[in-house]
Design a protein around this nucleic acid. Structure first.
Length: 368
DNA sequence: CGGGTTTGACCTGCGC
DNA sequence: GCGCAGGTCAAACCCG
């Protein structure tokens, strides 16, 4: 055991050393680029649960226009279609989504997904903005690389069994105790039968050389752990704003070190301390990978459909699902990714990915 | 000096 | 019950 621990530590240290240069790149980049997510209020469903995430996906697949190097998670936003029209690259993410909503209030990708219930849900799928209180309890956004270029995809999922109203209320109350929970955590033993409540989570997979993706919030690192089967450690960050319990984890894919998996957990209770609203525009990817490709994979209920759907870059969001009741105010084009959603190598990841990628997605893409 | 990072130790949940 | 791995704490350290 001690040996293993020491191994982990040494591995951790090694990887840290190896990435020191990248850190330097990050700092430089952060200083030279203004990639802000305006007023990025990260709103996720207020209720919590550690109920397993409800998977199934649709995908938004885009290719970012390469510019300069940034480390924003939103680098991936301006993009073209992957495997499809490679010409629509000038559209920003919002343009692609054809969203006329006021992001000054919704203000972030997270908000948008949450309020539009893009997150997988057993409820009537609707993109009508809804109060956070009605949102699915758990959401995860997983970015999914589809090309060697800078890539990202988003997946989200909702809770399944036990996701009833009473539990939501209960979870809401528990969220109020979140702050206290931090201090209690080590002092007060949890009740045996009481699973630890988890915040809704969004996971981003971005192809980037830098680990810390700027999302407009300030984060303090509070831990780092070696990840099993991965030479790269996982870093834990917490929002520095007082009372804000949002956390994020950052790790690299062991199979593709260029891919950074960022998982956000929780809900910001404050506006972005850094970014002015006007800078909501997503920056083109500039992580040095040339034409950047992004692909957003958003889980939907597993039982409903198992395919990843490609998001069309046409100005009007056309999204179609083949076997779900998913009926947003805009439709999806039935352009399945068929394996683009997540590389098998990534889906085998036993680290964070395993936690956030629906089990069916982790299997090899099934041709039809 | 304040705020952020590092890192060893500890806690917790889960599978066997 | 035990071991493992993920997650968190907090003292020490670093840096502007």
């Amino acid at each position: 055991m001690n040996e293993m621990k020491q191994n982990n530590i040494s591995v951790c240290k090694d990887s840290m050393e190896k990435r020191e240069e990248k850190k330097e790149v990050t700092r430089t980049t952060l200083k030279t680029e203004n990639f802000n997510m305006a007023n990025s209020t990260f709103i996720t469903p207020p209720t919590t649960s550690d109920i397993d995430l409800m998977p199934s996906f649709f995908a938004l697949s885009t290719t970012a226009t390469p510019t300069t190097t940034t480390s924003s998670i939103f680098d991936m936003m301006p993009c073209d279609i992957v495997g499809g029209d490679q010409k629509a690259g000038s559209l920003g993410f919002m343009d692609l989504l054809d969203i006329n909503q006021d992001f000054g209030t919704t203000s972030s990708l997270f908000d948008w997904f949450s309020q539009n219930q893009i997150v997988g849900s057993q409820q009537q799928q609707s993109f009508i903005p809804s109060p956070a209180s009605t949102l699915p309890e758990t959401s995860e956004v997983l970015n999914n690389p589809t090309t060697p270029n800078s890539s990202a995809s988003i997946s989200s999922s909702s809770n399944e069994a036990g996701n009833d109203g009473s539990q939501q209320v209960k979870a809401g109350d528990q969220e109020e105790e979140q702050d206290q929970d931090k201090t209690k955590k080590q002092l007060k033993p949890k009740k045996k039968n009481q699973k630890r409540q988890r915040e809704p989570r969004f996971a981003f997979m971005t192809k980037s050389e830098v680990d810390q993706l700027d999302d407009g919030y300030r984060w303090r690192k509070y831990g780092q752990k070696a990840v099993k089967n991965s030479p790269y450690p996982r870093s834990y960050y917490r929002c520095t704003s007082a009372g804000c319990g949002v956390k994020k984890r950052v790790e690299r894919s062991s199979d593709d070190p260029s891919i950074v998996v960022t998982t956000y957990e929780g809900q910001h209770i404050h506006p972005s301390p850094i970014t002015p609203r006007a800078s909501i525009g997503f920056m083109a990817d500039s992580s040095g990978f040339g034409a950047a490709t992004s692909s957003f994979v958003i889980p939907q209920p597993q039982y409903q459909q198992q395919h990843a759907y490609m998001y069309s870059s046409s100005p009007s969001l056309n999204i179609t699902t083949s076997s779900t009741s998913f009926s947003p105010s805009f439709s999806f084009q039935d352009r399945r990714l068929d394996g683009q959603a997540l590389p098998a190598s990534l889906l085998r990841d036993h680290g964070l990915l395993q936690d956030i990628v629906p089990s069916q997605m982790r299997k090899e893409p099934k041709e039809e």
